[in-house]
Structure formats: structure tokens, C-alpha cells
Design a protein around this nucleic acid. Structure first.
Lengths: 333, 333
DNA sequence: AGGGGCGATGATAGCGCTTGCATATGCATT
DNA sequence: AATGCATATGCAAGCGCTATCATCGCCCCT
């Protein structure tokens, strides 16, 4: 099957086999419609006969575009981004771009290493979520790669930001709970910046009205199911039980519900719960979980549309794309 | 900061700046210890001054090794592999290899495309899980990339297999449940091959003893939390209630527990539940979930050790690495 | 019939790095 | 002093593509 067993076939092999120049084969590979139909057929046959697989390292070097984008997120496990990543990877693969995945954790050092690695591969874009250190900013600014911050809308994005206002989301949740008559919310906030912003929004909106009280506790990022035991224990020790627990993720919300039920409480009658992210489980849990929906797929699409534009030389017109969010009231609150 | 603003600095720029040849800089970058300390210092300074970032496309082309490995899995969301992937990506990044992530879904077509894409990047290895079609096998066999099938131990691995016997795992669960006195198990099997193997193992082991009955239902892969409603409804319609539900993932097990509790049943007294994979939630759920632990981190380590060996020219001695599994009895069964 | 334009193809100079080979230097050995 | 052998560095030929420019027919228009 393989004409030259020792080494993998190259463009030259295909060209020789098809009786055309390498340039023509290259053109065919990148855009079949520019070669004459008859030639195309011969090349196609030659490719099949030789078992040719393009070498994108060489291609990328020559064209200085890698058709590769880096996706850098903090965690994979139980992560609120999972749905977004899933769509992102699907969309990108569909557009025949390779996804380089990096897990930054909370370490700035690691983030830097990953950015450097991405830049080393001359990625077309870096999709990033998390705090940007000055070092990272410096590296990224002088590179031609498009830098896309997702899930948030920083005041001064380096490249493009695709996300929503966490502060506004926090406010919305506060208003919703007030309107439902809750008076004693307990916030569980993860140490990450975005969660803090939602918390601040909530606090800003919550009225210091009579009979209303606001308590809180914190967890390490990410807001996981497993944190629920400790948090619930903390809540029970509070002098006055809160009437609703506001969580940083649906997983944590799920955990709180499980704990509450194990303690013999009813949700939402005895204690209500609000999640965040509208993960698939939110609608599947019993009771179903009131949550804030973020359109992860849309974030993915917008990011990729921007990458495509940027790739074809078009300058980006906007610096922020606000995809908004939507509070979905379900059974848990 | 950047000496030549228009284009990103190359090895030549650094070499000129440090007053050495490009070869020396290249050697320094790849293995600092081979250049004289004084030279090393000058080069280090030159790199800092120019803001040089190596171009791995060029490097890979020249050395025909990309320091990149492809990780191809079916899903990300709620996936039983999440922990494995997490460790895999961490380990790989630590070894300064880039991870190319591909989501195959259940489509053979897509799998092929992803394998082709990986091969196009001249990845050093492909870490794969899922069924291997003849087309994929053909492509992979003629490439120098190491092909590692994880999570399973196929009879004839193409390259290396790192996993465990699903059939044995199924048998173990069966024996465990018998010993605990369960008599009416209900199996929930996902349509994937590995889940089928566990099921077959379970069936082979389960005795057709008197008073014992075996029922089953099936779900699409992956075995998700969300399937629980339908499955539980199915179970309730059974003429005789099973005494234990055996699930293909801890997420599904979690879902069954939630459904059972919502229906007013006690777990495990009224109905017991067994999960699979020992995801973090297994030990955190209430009740904690009896599950089969698979050492995902070990799979990751073994795979990466093999890649490193393969990279340094050593031939692989073994074709299978059995990491085993361990049934962890907890509260749910 | 001549010229212009266009579509299809070929020739070829890099893209930025690695690496085998050659060279140079220093030091221990005879 | 002559020899040998590490060790440190330079030279230069590619790695397999892409993209620019040039060439060649061929058809259409005047």
C-alpha cells in the first residue's frame, strides 16, 4: 500500500505519482477547486495510492499559520466549563483546527508555561479563562495570536472578550430571591475572581431590610459537589438557618440538596438552593435546580467566528461580546 | 523590549545577540548543560533581551518529533474518563509535551478525521479509547506514532494497551453482590463495547440459582446522571423490584439514588446501587457509592512512561499493561 | 487575425529550526 | 615535546511544505 516503506510519503511523492508539480498538489490539498477536475482526479488517486498524509508542521512553518488553537482552562473535573469546552472542541474540530488543551489550575507559573507552549506552536488563537498576569499579557501582546478571554468581560481585554457580567448575574439572583420572598440567603463563594464578582453583585443588590440577613462561606475553586458536606455543616451551625443557599455551581448546589435531604430537610420548603451555570444536571436533579444559564455553545461559536475572521486578515471590530445570561427558575428555589 | 518589532525573534536573532552560532543556541534551548556555562549565560541574556520564543513547528519539522500527543476520547461532559484525562493532561504538560484533545463521540468518521489530524501534526503518540476501525488501524500502523489504547485490554492491541479487564470487573461485582446476599440485580448497560464486556462478565458469573433473577436495561453512552429518571421508571414497572441496581458510571448511580430517595425508598435498604469508576462523587454522595476503582492517574503515568521510552528509541517490551481495578464497598450496596 | 485576459500549472526561494561533520581548544598521558 | 581524547562550537544541508512569480494555452472580443 505504501509506495516507499521506509519513510512516510511527501508531497513530492504524490506529485511524481500524479505527474504534476508539488505546487499543484499543495493547491489541491488546500483548496481542491482551484485545480482542473481531471488533474484533481489524478491527484486524488495518487494520494490514495501513496497513503499521503500532509505534514502540518511543514505547512504551518511555511505559511506561518498553524490551524491550531489553545484552550486554557483551570480544571476539567466537575468544572462548570465542561459544556463550553465540549462545544468548543467540537466546533473547532469541525473547522479542521486542532485543539491544544491546557489545564492551568490556579498556578500563575503554570499558566505562563502553557501560554509559552502555545506560542511556541504558533497557535492562531488562545482561548483563555482566568486571571491574566502581567507576564502573560506581555508575551501575548507581542505575538500575532488572537487572545480571547471567555466567560467574563474584563474592562481592558487584551484581545477579545466573550462572556457576560458576573456582577449583573449576582444582582439578578439577589433580585429574584427577594421577589420570591427569601430573606436569609447564605452565599457560598469560591475563591476565584469571577465568583467574587457575582458575590459582590449580590451584596450590592441585597437590601439591608428589616428581618433580612446575609451570611456566607467560601470554598476553594472549583465549586465542587464534594464541598457540600463541610458547607452544609457550617450552615447548620449558624444561629439562624438561612432560607436559601446560593452556590457557585450546580454541582455544589446538587451536593447541598443531597445533604439537606439526608438531614431530613425538604428542598425548597425548609431550605432553598440556587446553582450556577445551568449544567445538564440542573434540569435533571430532584428537585430540579434553579440556576443561571450561560450559553456555553454560543461563547464557543462567537470565539471561533472571531478566530476565523482574524485568520482571514479582517481586523476585529469589537472588543467585547456580551452573550448575557438567563436565570432559570426551577423547583429548588 | 522586542529588538525587531515587525516579526518575532528567531534563533538567528538570539545567536547574533549572543555572539554565537545558531547551532549553539539551539543546543542550549534543547539541553542547556551541553554548552559552556559562560556561553549559557550570554545566551540566556540574549533570549531575555530579544523575547525569543522557540518555534516548535520548525523544530518539529527539522527533528521529526513534535513533542505533542493526541488524546482522543468520546466525551468530556459527565465522562467517566474525566479524572484520567485530568491527570493525563497534567502529566503531559509537566513533561513539556503538548496535548491535542479530540472528541470522537461515537462516530467512526469523526474518529478517522481526528486520527488523520493527529498524524498530520506528526504527534509522537496517540492515546485513544474506543473501538478501532480497520481504516484507523491502517493509518496508524504505517505511522511512526505510538498508539496507546487505554481503559481496556484488547486481545490484539495495535501498539500498547493500558487498562484492565472489564469482563473481570463485571465478574467481581457479581461475586460481591452475591456475597452480600443480593438476589435480584438489575443491570444498566451503556451501548459502548467496554460496558458490554462488564455486563457479559456479570452475566457469566451470576448463578441461575433459585430465587435469583437478573433484569437489565440499556442507555446510550455515556452513562449519565440524566438517564436515571427513565431507568428508574423502568425499574418501578418491573413485576418484581430488583434489590440492587448496577450502573455503568457513578453519575448514573448517583441519579438512581436521587430518584429512589425522591420516591421515598431508602438506599441501600429498599434498593441498593453500585456505580463504576470511583469518581470523586462516589465517596461524597449520601449514601456513599459502592464502586469499582480504576486508577486513572496510573493509566496516565504508564502511558506517558511508554511514550517517553518510545521517544528515546527504546522498543516497547510489553503490549499490555494491566493496571487492575478494585471494588470499593461503601454505603450504597 | 491579433491582442487581451484568464485559468491552470510549474519553478523555486524561503519558513526557522536540528544535526552530522569538521574544527578548535585545553588538558592529561606517554 | 608529541600524542590522544574530551569538550565546546561553527558550518551548512536539509526537514516538507507554501506562495510568489512566470509561463503557457485557450477562448473571446473587436
Amino acid at each position: 500500500m505504501n509506495d516507499v516503506p521506509g519513510r512516510s510519503p511527501t508531497l513530492d511523492d504524490v506529485a511524481a505519482h500524479a505527474g504534476v508539480s508539488t505546487a499543484t498538489v499543495s493547491r489541491f490539498v488546500n483548496n481542491p477547486s482551484v485545480v482542473a477536475p481531471a488533474t484533481a482526479d489524478r491527484i486524488r488517486a495518487a494520494i490514495a495510492a501513496t497513503g499521503y498524509i500532509p505534514n502540518l508542521l511543514a505547512g504551518g512553518l511555511a505559511s506561518s499559520k498553524s490551524k491550531m488553537v489553545a484552550v486554557l482552562i483551570p480544571y476539567l473535573t466537575d468544572s462548570i466549563f465542561n459544556d463550553t469546552i465540549q462545544s468548543m472542541v467540537e466546533e473547532l474540530s469541525g473547522a479542521s483546527t486542532t485543539v491544544m488543551l491546557g489545564l492551568t489550575g490556579v498556578s500563575a507559573r503554570r499558566t505562563e508555561d502553557l501560554i509559552r507552549a502555545a506560542l511556541s506552536r504558533r497557535v492562531d488563537a488562545i482561548i483563555f479563562t482566568g486571571p491574566v498576569t502581567p507576564e502573560v499579557e506581555a508575551m501575548v501582546r507581542r505575538s500575532p495570536a488572537l487572545f480571547i478571554e471567555v466567560w467574563d468581560l474584563p474592562k481592558e481585554p487584551i484581545g477579545l472578550a466573550v462572556g457576560f457580567s458576573h456582577e449583573a448575574a449576582g444582582r439578578d439572583v439577589a433580585r429574584f430571591l427577594m421577589s420570591r420572598g427569601y430573606r436569609r440567603p447564605h452565599l457560598v463563594t469560591a475563591s476565584g475572581t469571577r465568583a467574587q464578582m457575582r458575590r459582590d453583585g449580590f451584596f450590592a443588590e441585597w437590601p439591608a431590610a428589616e428581618g433580612s440577613a446575609l451570611t456566607e462561606s467560601s470554598v476553594e475553586v472549583p465549586s465542587r459537589f464534594g464541598h457540600a458536606r463541610r458547607i452544609f455543616a457550617e450552615i447548620r451551625r449558624l444561629p439562624d438557618m438561612p432560607d436559601v443557599v446560593v452556590c457557585g455551581s450546580d454541582y455544589l448546589a446538587q451536593g447541598i440538596i443531597v445533604e439537606a435531604m439526608a438531614a431530613g430537610l425538604r428542598v425548597p420548603e425548609d431550605i432553598a438552593v440556587v446553582g450556577f451555570g445551568n449544567s445538564s444536571i440542573a434540569g435533571e436533579m430532584r428537585p430540579t435546580i434553579t440556576s443561571v444559564e450561560v450559553d456555553g455553545a454560543r461563547i464557543a461559536r462567537e470565539a471561533i467566528a472571531a478566530i476565523r475572521k482574524h485568520g482571514s486578515g479582517e481586523p476585529l471590530r469589537e472588543r467585547w461580546i456580551d452573550v448575557g445570561f438567563r436565570l432559570i427558575a426551577r423547583e429548588s428555589a
